[in-house]
Protein backbone atom coordinates (compact mmCIF):
# COMPACT_ATOMS: atom_id res chain seq x y z
CA UNK A 1 0.00 0.00 0.00
CA UNK A 2 1.27 3.39 -0.95
CA UNK A 3 -1.28 5.40 0.99
CA UNK A 4 1.22 6.44 3.66
CA UNK A 5 3.54 7.92 1.10
CA UNK A 6 0.71 9.68 -0.67
CA UNK A 7 -0.58 11.14 2.57
CA UNK A 8 2.75 12.64 3.34
CA UNK A 9 2.79 14.16 -0.11
CA UNK A 10 -0.74 15.54 0.34
CA UNK A 11 0.51 17.72 3.18
CA UNK A 12 2.48 19.63 0.55
CA UNK A 13 -0.57 20.31 -1.59
CA UNK A 14 -2.29 23.68 -1.53
CA UNK A 15 -5.58 23.97 0.34
CA UNK A 16 -8.59 23.50 -1.94
CA UNK A 17 -11.39 23.85 0.55
CA UNK A 18 -11.20 25.47 3.94
CA UNK A 19 -14.09 25.21 6.37
CA UNK A 20 -14.02 26.94 9.72
CA UNK A 21 -16.57 27.04 12.53
CA UNK A 22 -19.30 25.72 10.26
CA UNK A 23 -22.73 25.52 11.88
CA UNK A 24 -25.76 24.16 10.02
CA UNK A 25 -29.30 24.11 11.35
CA UNK A 26 -32.74 23.36 9.96
CA UNK A 27 -35.56 25.49 11.43
CA UNK A 28 -33.31 26.20 14.41
CA UNK A 29 -32.57 22.49 14.96
CA UNK A 30 -28.79 22.11 14.77
CA UNK A 31 -27.65 19.49 12.24
CA UNK A 32 -23.92 20.08 12.32
CA UNK A 33 -21.92 22.25 14.65
CA UNK A 34 -18.46 23.67 14.91
CA UNK A 35 -16.77 21.89 12.03
CA UNK A 36 -13.34 23.14 10.99
CA UNK A 37 -11.30 21.27 8.43
CA UNK A 38 -9.36 21.71 5.25
CA UNK A 39 -9.28 19.61 2.13
CA UNK A 40 -6.14 19.70 0.03
CA UNK A 41 -5.77 19.53 -3.72
CA UNK A 42 -5.62 16.04 -5.24
CA UNK A 43 -6.53 14.19 -2.11
CA UNK A 44 -9.48 11.97 -1.42
CA UNK A 45 -11.04 13.21 1.78
CA UNK A 46 -13.32 10.64 3.36
CA UNK A 47 -16.23 11.43 5.65
CA UNK A 48 -17.68 8.51 7.58
CA UNK A 49 -20.40 8.35 10.18
CA UNK A 50 -23.85 6.88 10.81
CA UNK A 51 -27.13 8.35 9.57
CA UNK A 52 -28.04 11.83 10.82
CA UNK A 53 -24.41 12.69 11.42
CA UNK A 54 -24.62 15.79 9.20
CA UNK A 55 -22.53 14.42 6.32
CA UNK A 56 -24.95 15.37 3.55
CA UNK A 57 -25.64 18.78 5.11
CA UNK A 58 -21.90 19.39 5.06
CA UNK A 59 -21.74 18.74 1.31
CA UNK A 60 -24.79 20.95 0.71
CA UNK A 61 -23.14 23.86 2.45
CA UNK A 62 -20.14 23.74 0.13
CA UNK A 63 -21.74 24.26 -3.28
CA UNK A 64 -24.52 26.44 -1.86
CA UNK A 65 -27.30 23.90 -2.12
CA UNK A 66 -28.64 25.53 1.03
CA UNK A 67 -30.37 27.89 -1.40
CA UNK A 68 -32.85 25.15 -2.31
CA UNK A 69 -34.07 24.85 1.27
CA UNK A 70 -35.25 28.05 2.96
CA UNK A 71 -35.25 26.26 6.33
CA UNK A 72 -31.56 25.49 6.10
CA UNK A 73 -29.33 27.98 7.86
CA UNK A 74 -25.56 28.02 7.51
CA UNK A 75 -23.12 30.01 9.63
CA UNK A 76 -19.34 30.00 9.60
CA UNK A 77 -16.78 30.21 6.86
CA UNK A 78 -16.50 28.04 3.73
CA UNK A 79 -13.64 28.92 1.38
CA UNK A 80 -13.19 27.32 -2.02
CA UNK A 81 -9.88 28.26 -3.66
CA UNK A 82 -9.57 30.79 -0.87
CA UNK A 83 -12.83 32.39 -1.84
CA UNK A 84 -15.76 32.72 0.63
CA UNK A 85 -18.61 30.87 -1.09
CA UNK A 86 -21.20 32.72 0.98
CA UNK A 87 -20.03 36.01 -0.42
CA UNK A 88 -19.94 35.77 -4.18
CA UNK A 89 -22.18 37.01 -6.93
CA UNK A 90 -22.15 34.19 -9.46
CA UNK A 91 -23.02 31.04 -7.55
CA UNK A 92 -23.51 29.17 -10.85
CA UNK A 93 -19.82 29.63 -11.67
CA UNK A 94 -19.01 28.05 -8.30
CA UNK A 95 -21.33 25.09 -8.86
CA UNK A 96 -20.01 24.46 -12.36
CA UNK A 97 -16.59 23.76 -10.80
CA UNK A 98 -17.92 21.32 -8.21
CA UNK A 99 -19.34 17.97 -9.30
CA UNK A 100 -21.85 16.26 -7.01
CA UNK A 101 -23.14 12.68 -7.01
CA UNK A 102 -26.19 12.16 -4.84
CA UNK A 103 -26.96 8.91 -3.01
CA UNK A 104 -29.98 8.03 -5.14
CA UNK A 105 -29.49 8.13 -8.90
CA UNK A 106 -30.89 11.11 -10.75
CA UNK A 107 -31.04 10.27 -14.44
CA UNK A 108 -32.34 13.44 -16.06
CA UNK A 109 -35.19 12.89 -18.55
CA UNK A 110 -32.81 13.33 -21.49
CA UNK A 111 -31.06 10.76 -23.64
CA UNK A 112 -27.98 9.06 -22.21
CA UNK A 113 -25.86 11.16 -24.55
CA UNK A 114 -27.54 14.42 -23.64
CA UNK A 115 -27.23 13.67 -19.91
CA UNK A 116 -23.49 13.63 -20.23
CA UNK A 117 -23.21 16.34 -22.89
CA UNK A 118 -25.33 18.77 -20.87
CA UNK A 119 -22.61 20.30 -18.71
CA UNK A 120 -20.11 20.82 -21.57
CA UNK A 121 -22.94 22.33 -23.66
CA UNK A 122 -23.81 24.72 -20.83
CA UNK A 123 -20.17 25.76 -20.82
CA UNK A 124 -20.40 26.49 -24.55
CA UNK A 125 -18.90 23.40 -26.21
CA UNK A 126 -20.75 23.08 -29.52
CA UNK A 127 -18.47 20.90 -31.64
CA UNK A 128 -20.08 17.48 -32.09
CA UNK A 129 -16.78 15.62 -32.34
CA UNK A 130 -15.51 17.23 -29.15
CA UNK A 131 -18.76 16.37 -27.33
CA UNK A 132 -18.52 12.77 -28.58
CA UNK A 133 -15.07 12.48 -27.06
CA UNK A 134 -16.17 13.91 -23.72
CA UNK A 135 -19.26 11.68 -23.57
CA UNK A 136 -17.34 8.52 -24.35
CA UNK A 137 -14.53 9.33 -21.92
CA UNK A 138 -16.88 10.19 -19.03
CA UNK A 139 -19.09 7.15 -19.59
CA UNK A 140 -16.04 4.92 -19.80
CA UNK A 141 -14.65 6.30 -16.57
CA UNK A 142 -17.97 5.73 -14.84
CA UNK A 143 -17.80 2.07 -16.02
CA UNK A 144 -20.93 2.49 -18.09
CA UNK A 145 -19.73 2.90 -21.68
CA UNK A 146 -19.80 -0.79 -22.64
CA UNK A 147 -23.38 -1.16 -21.45
CA UNK A 148 -24.85 1.91 -23.13
CA UNK A 149 -22.71 2.58 -26.20
CA UNK A 150 -25.40 1.09 -28.46
CA UNK A 151 -28.26 2.98 -26.86
CA UNK A 152 -26.95 6.48 -26.34
CA UNK A 153 -30.20 7.84 -27.74
CA UNK A 154 -32.52 6.16 -25.26
CA UNK A 155 -33.75 8.01 -22.20
CA UNK A 156 -31.34 8.17 -19.27
CA UNK A 157 -34.24 7.91 -16.85
CA UNK A 158 -35.09 4.46 -18.28
CA UNK A 159 -31.78 2.86 -17.31
CA UNK A 160 -31.65 0.57 -14.30
CA UNK A 161 -30.94 2.09 -10.89
CA UNK A 162 -27.28 1.10 -10.87
CA UNK A 163 -26.79 2.30 -14.43
CA UNK A 164 -28.45 5.61 -13.63
CA UNK A 165 -26.07 6.06 -10.72
CA UNK A 166 -23.09 5.53 -13.00
CA UNK A 167 -24.70 7.92 -15.49
CA UNK A 168 -24.87 10.46 -12.66
CA UNK A 169 -21.19 9.95 -11.99
CA UNK A 170 -20.40 10.34 -15.70
CA UNK A 171 -22.40 13.57 -15.70
CA UNK A 172 -20.50 14.92 -12.72
CA UNK A 173 -17.22 14.09 -14.49
CA UNK A 174 -18.39 15.84 -17.67
CA UNK A 175 -18.31 19.10 -15.74
CA UNK A 176 -14.55 18.64 -15.55
CA UNK A 177 -14.83 19.66 -11.90
CA UNK A 178 -12.05 20.82 -9.62
CA UNK A 179 -13.83 19.26 -6.68
CA UNK A 180 -15.90 16.09 -6.88
CA UNK A 181 -18.26 15.37 -3.99
CA UNK A 182 -19.65 11.84 -3.80
CA UNK A 183 -22.46 11.21 -1.32
CA UNK A 184 -22.73 7.47 -0.66
CA UNK A 185 -22.45 6.81 -4.38
CA UNK A 186 -22.32 3.04 -4.07
CA UNK A 187 -25.70 2.70 -2.37
CA UNK A 188 -27.42 1.64 -5.63
CA UNK A 189 -24.45 0.02 -7.36
CA UNK A 190 -23.41 -3.64 -7.27
CA UNK A 191 -20.11 -4.56 -5.57
CA UNK A 192 -18.23 -5.36 -8.78
CA UNK A 193 -19.11 -2.04 -10.36
CA UNK A 194 -18.36 -0.29 -7.09
CA UNK A 195 -14.85 -1.68 -7.24
CA UNK A 196 -14.42 -0.49 -10.83
CA UNK A 197 -15.56 3.01 -9.91
CA UNK A 198 -13.27 3.01 -6.90
CA UNK A 199 -10.33 2.28 -9.21
CA UNK A 200 -11.41 5.20 -11.38
CA UNK A 201 -11.56 7.48 -8.34
CA UNK A 202 -7.96 6.55 -7.48
CA UNK A 203 -6.98 7.73 -10.97
CA UNK A 204 -9.12 10.84 -10.87
CA UNK A 205 -7.37 11.98 -7.74
CA UNK A 206 -4.50 13.12 -9.94
CA UNK A 207 -6.78 15.57 -11.71
CA UNK A 208 -9.16 16.77 -9.05
CA UNK A 209 -9.95 16.88 -5.37
CA UNK A 210 -12.50 14.38 -4.10
CA UNK A 211 -14.69 14.39 -1.01
CA UNK A 212 -16.09 10.94 -0.42
CA UNK A 213 -18.99 10.62 1.98
CA UNK A 214 -19.62 6.97 2.68
CA UNK A 215 -21.28 4.74 5.20
CA UNK A 216 -19.08 1.87 4.11
CA UNK A 217 -16.19 2.22 6.52
CA UNK A 218 -13.99 -0.07 4.45
CA UNK A 219 -14.57 2.06 1.37
CA UNK A 220 -13.09 5.04 3.17
CA UNK A 221 -10.15 2.88 4.20
CA UNK A 222 -9.59 1.74 0.61
CA UNK A 223 -9.75 5.19 -0.93
CA UNK A 224 -9.33 8.12 1.41
CA UNK A 225 -6.03 9.78 2.24
CA UNK A 226 -7.54 11.41 5.28
CA UNK A 227 -10.86 10.68 6.91
CA UNK A 228 -13.20 12.64 9.14
CA UNK A 229 -15.63 10.92 11.49
CA UNK A 230 -18.95 12.71 11.95
CA UNK A 231 -21.38 11.72 14.67
CA UNK A 232 -24.70 13.33 15.52
CA UNK A 233 -23.81 16.74 14.13
CA UNK A 234 -20.30 16.77 15.50
CA UNK A 235 -16.98 16.27 13.76
CA UNK A 236 -15.44 13.86 16.23
CA UNK A 237 -12.07 13.35 14.64
CA UNK A 238 -10.02 13.97 11.52
CA UNK A 239 -6.91 12.01 10.76
CA UNK A 240 -4.80 10.02 8.32
CA UNK A 241 -7.05 7.18 7.21
CA UNK A 242 -4.52 4.43 7.96
CA UNK A 243 -3.97 5.86 11.41
CA UNK A 244 -7.68 5.88 12.20
CA UNK A 245 -8.00 2.28 11.14
CA UNK A 246 -4.95 1.05 12.98
CA UNK A 247 -6.12 2.43 16.27
CA UNK A 248 -4.21 5.68 16.46
CA UNK A 249 -7.29 7.65 17.49
CA UNK A 250 -7.85 10.47 19.93
CA UNK A 251 -11.45 9.56 20.64
CA UNK A 252 -12.74 6.20 21.78
CA UNK A 253 -15.95 6.69 19.71
CA UNK A 254 -13.92 6.70 16.50
CA UNK A 255 -12.29 3.41 17.40
CA UNK A 256 -15.68 1.88 18.20
CA UNK A 257 -17.17 3.06 14.92
CA UNK A 258 -14.41 1.89 12.59
CA UNK A 259 -14.28 -1.45 14.37
CA UNK A 260 -18.04 -1.84 14.00
CA UNK A 261 -18.75 -1.88 17.72
CA UNK A 262 -21.21 0.94 17.66
CA UNK A 263 -24.63 1.51 19.19
Amino acid sequence: MVSQAVSAAVEQHPVKLEVSNLEISYDGQPALSNVSLEVRENEIFGIIGPANAGKTSFLKSINRMDMFNPNMNVAGDVRFNGRDVYNLRNVYALRSRIGVVFPLPVGLPLTVYENVALAPRLKGVKDKAELDVIVERCLARAALWDEVKDRLDSLGSLLSGGQQQRLTIARALSQDPELLMLDEFSIAVDPVTTMRIEDVLKDLKNEMTIILVTNLVQQARRLADRTAFFLEGECVEIGETEALFTGEVKDQRTRDYVEGRFG
Binding site: R83, R89, N90, D176, E178
Partner: peptide, 26 residues
Amino acid sequence: MSEQNPSSVEIMDAFDRRDLAWFIDK
Protein backbone atom coordinates in the same frame (compact mmCIF):
# COMPACT_ATOMS: atom_id res chain seq x y z
CA MET B 1 -8.71 16.86 -18.40
CA SER B 2 -8.28 18.37 -21.85
CA GLU B 3 -8.39 22.03 -20.84
CA GLN B 4 -5.95 23.42 -18.38
CA ASN B 5 -7.23 24.48 -15.01
CA PRO B 6 -7.46 28.24 -14.83
CA SER B 7 -5.22 29.86 -12.29
CA SER B 8 -6.54 30.88 -8.89
CA VAL B 9 -6.74 34.55 -9.75
CA GLU B 10 -8.95 33.89 -12.77
CA ILE B 11 -11.25 31.73 -10.64
CA MET B 12 -11.73 34.46 -8.10
CA ASP B 13 -12.87 36.74 -10.90
CA ALA B 14 -15.22 34.13 -12.35
CA PHE B 15 -17.16 33.81 -9.12
CA ASP B 16 -18.09 37.47 -9.36
CA ARG B 17 -18.30 37.75 -13.14
CA ARG B 18 -21.58 38.80 -14.67
CA ASP B 19 -21.42 36.51 -17.69
CA LEU B 20 -24.11 36.05 -20.33
CA ALA B 21 -25.75 33.15 -18.50
CA TRP B 22 -25.88 35.26 -15.34
CA PHE B 23 -27.57 38.14 -17.16
CA ILE B 24 -30.09 35.86 -18.86
CA ASP B 25 -30.84 34.31 -15.47
CA LYS B 26 -31.51 37.72 -13.91
